[in-house]
Amino acid sequence: MLVLHQLKRLLSDDCLVWHDIPVGTQARQPDFFIFSPRQGLLALEVKETRRPGA
């Protein structure tokens, strides 16, 4: 998964990245959770897009 590899490459080593973790009573699944000890927790939803001509 391209986004996961990019996140791991670009984020600092103390960040943790999880993907497709069920959350809440309806078990919704944000694409990624990113945890930084300095900045907190971020739930990230990635939308698929295509580049022109791709």
Rank of each mutant, 00 (worst) to 15 (best):
L44I: 14
G53S: 05
A27Y: 08
P22G: 13
Q26E: 11
L7T: 00
L10E: 15
E45F: 02
H5Y: 08
A27I: 09
L41S: 06
V17L: 08
G40F: 04
V17K: 01
R28G: 05
L11I: 08
A43T: 04
E45G: 07
H5P: 01
A54E: 15
R50G: 06
W18K: 10
T25D: 14
L7K: 02
L7E: 01
F32M: 01
A54N: 10
W18A: 15
D20S: 15
Q6Y: 04
G53R: 08
R28E: 05
R51S: 13
Q26A: 12
L2P: 13
P22C: 12
R51A: 14
D31G: 06
Q29A: 10
M1H: 08
V17E: 02
H5Q: 14
H5D: 12
R28T: 06
R9I: 01
V3K: 06
G53D: 03
P30Q: 08
D20Y: 11
R50C: 07
R28V: 03
D14I: 04
Q6E: 13
V23R: 14
R50E: 09
F32E: 00
H19T: 11
L11K: 02
Q29L: 09
H19V: 05
L10K: 11
S36I: 03
K8H: 12
L16K: 15
L10M: 10
P37Y: 02
Q29S: 05
L41C: 08
T25P: 02
D14N: 15
P22Y: 08
L44A: 12
K47Y: 01
V23L: 15
M1A: 07
G24L: 03
T25N: 15
S36D: 13
E48Y: 12
